[in-house]
Design a protein around this nucleic acid. Structure first.
Lengths: 218, 218, 218, 218
DNA sequence: TATGAATGAGCTTTCATTCAT
DNA sequence: GATGAATGAAAGCTCATTCAT
């Protein structure tokens, strides 16, 4: 019998949520291979067989969790893109980044899973998931830069790929620094609050604006 | 009988090296928990008991490997610090970063272990190792910034911690982008060569110079 | 609540047949223990609970299938017995054997179940079913031989039991060799057609006739 | 780590034998899928891990057992072939068959495994093992028939393939009838002793001699 | 009557660690 | 000092059967 997502989707919403939360927590804490289905079902108080009926395999659980997360992430990004159409590149990047920070704050365990996958070559589905994510974010930033280029917001001598690389690096590393406190409180800026976060982001974007457009913010 | 590092250190240098290389490779590829002592001894062609005699436990092997690596890393950093004393902050950061890139190119498996540990909370010794590394690198950058501040290389309104954060972020993320091709060739700039690497670093530092000192490189 | 064959027998004939066919196929392909009730209900598109309502247990399904088959087999044998009364022993055996071959061709999966049961001690109901079948076929052949003996068709120095043994062996092994191509096409005479089958049977019976009656066919 | 037959072969002979006997018994009684490694190690009083170290997988255990058996079977067959070279076909077949009966009496569990495999399509290694056995026995009988044909022992109008089929059928079914008492005592000739066995074989071969050569034994 | 979610004992397999030789 | 056989807890996964709806 193949895994039957149907069975899971027929459950009470509350039970479904408890399972999702517990599974996400387990993968976030232990990565894939060290995550234990035994622990999950013990904490959930359900039978082992049930979880396997829902998702088929341990990997199936992970795929469901991750797929769900990607779906949840896409909506706000799309909204921002539409709402800010024609606006300033750096402001758009700022909003997207803050949306990312919001997502991480709301779903820190999802982001922990992502970070683990990023640096563990033997994480299952790594290629598939990363490709999917990079295609999305790469195309997204590329289109923002392209539009900015066409409307003269960037220095004409700037290479498009380099600009995308710098923006990607900035957003990505910034989000990592936001997330680390959620991992275990061990970061340079311990437990940064929202205010600090925005200030830091503004500093970074200000640097980029300087370098990429030649026009200081103020 | 306690683990006897002595026994290991009495071995032929060539045997010692083979063991170190193989162990490093195994941890780099599989992380800690998925690493297999069986595979190590099979590839090495030595008895399982021997490895446990040398290092006591699997974790003991990791500690030895990582401790060795930290020792190897300290020497070049110290040298640069002394040789560039009194020089330009960004040039010093540039040299340190390139030294980091050299180390990664020479010992990619060490860096792979580091990246895995960074984001896996259940990696053993994680706290101890990260504290040790961050104390080193934090103090290092802090002293560079301090010296630069005192010699008027930075805008006086810049917060020291913010400057350290920006530099740390830049160096760290840059090194990650250098390393990823060694992981699986899946990065934005595929298989960047040395030339490209230096160009990218210069762009990043140029941005920082703009923002932090107000004085463009030229 | 005990199993309720009644419930099953109240079903549409078409549904009942689909269930019988699918169950027979499953047991024929996998034997008893490896047969999966899950697979059956999935292929049938009915609820698992229903099958258990009809037959009580997995073993109950098998018993129903096999009992049904034995019933189907008895009718043609009885008919032949009556129609050939008083005829030549070897001709009677020939007709019975060919009736068996017809049955196997019409219901190969039933015969596959029989063969599996024959050689698997842990097949449930094995004793019961085999006893039942052997009682039937033993008595059947015995009566044929007895009648032939009485009417002088056999050498008087032939032991009755030995004659039954030889006939039984011949018929049984012949039917196995007919059936094997239906199992997986792996037999000495690959995919023998009806013509070949009859020729082979005639050879075997000719040998027996030689030995048992001293009178060659032609 | 691959299965290490070495480990097993380094064991005491007595331990090795106990393991072989217990494993053979388990597979003989339950077939492959229903056989339980748990039961084996419990009866043996050894750790579960040990058995897997020796043979790698459950299937590995079976392969070792079966391979061992085939090796044991080849020696006597080869000897008979050489010793009877140039002799009477039916006498040669008789000796080979009796050697088979001896083997079955000495190693009934091996033969039980063979019979189970024969009729279970999902028995692992079935194709491989059967091909191996049939190649051996088919070539063997074929060469005996060929030699007999050339030396004029058979009627010239007999088809070689038909003769091989009849001999194969006879030997094979005869051995099955010898073996069945060892399965569960449930056979037509209950617990036939050696005397009875030889008499029955002689009857069968006498029939064949009649049919194939036209020359009755006496 | 039909459904299908829940169960849990059982399965095969792995692997760090120990210790007698 | 080196060896490698032995261990056993824990892992992921299956499946006949039950029972509330």
């Amino acid at each position: 019998m193949p895994p039957q997502k149907t069975t899971f989707e027929n459950l009470d919403q509350s039970k479904r949520e408890r399972i999702m939360i517990e599974a996400t927590k387990e993968f976030a804490e232990y990565g894939f291979h060290q995550a234990s289905v035994n622990r999950m079902v013990n904490r959930l108080g359900i039978a082992k067989g049930s979880l396997f009926k829902y998702f088929g395999t341990k990997q199936g659980i992970l795929e469901y969790v991750f797929g769900h997360a990607v779906t949840m992430l896409k909506a706000p990004l799309k909204q921002i893109r539409l709402e800010t159409e024609g606006g300033d590149l750096f402001e758009r990047v700022r909003q997207v980044t803050l949306a990312g920070a919001d997502f991480i704050e709301a779903h820190p365990n999802i982001y922990r899973i992502y970070l683990k996958m990023l640096l563990q070559e033997n994480f299952p589905m790594r290629e598939r998931f990363l490709t999917r994510i990079r295609a999305t974010s790469g195309k997204f930033l590329h289109s923002l830069v392209q539009e900015a280029m066409e409307s003269g917001q960037l220095r004409s001598d700037i290479d498009t790929d380099m600009a995308v690389y710098l923006l990607d690096t900035t957003v990505d590393r910034f989000l990592q620094s936001v997330a680390v406190p959620f991992l275990d409180g061990d970061s340079i800026l311990h437990g940064a609050d929202r205010q600090t976060i925005e200030t830091r982001l503004d500093s970074l974007l200000d640097l980029l604006r300087h370098g990429l457009s030649g026009i200081p913010k103020t």
